[in-house]
Amino acid sequence: MTRGNYAMPMTDEKTSVQLTEARVWEALKDVNDPEMPISLVDMGMVYGVSVDPQERAVTVKLGLTATACPAMDFIREDVTKRLCQEGFRRVEVEWVWDPPWTKERISEEGRLLLSCWGISV
């Protein structure tokens, strides 16, 4: 389901906050790459987000830095946990390889943080 189908976004009854894509992006800033000290968003790993507010479902498209990522389970688990806190009932993580993740996708802020950790990119 795509964004814009709903003139009136549904609200989460418990918290009365709308389940929007912007909110998912915001929440994903709290989820770190398990092997890096910066968030998935700053790593440029979030390729897309789509929300179905009625179903309280969200699909997150993630591009992994390597095909051999040893932390796929951890990433899926962390993303799911964080988005459930936002009020989603169904969280789906999709792995995307195309276009491949590259270092250029790391945000300015991410670069700065990484350099503080002594990691050059």
Partner: peptide, 11 residues
């Protein structure tokens, strides 16, 4: 398969 080729070749 087409979707994964670029990533594999990059590595």
């Amino acid at each position: 398969v087409r979707r994964m080729v670029a990533k594999i070749l990059q590595e």
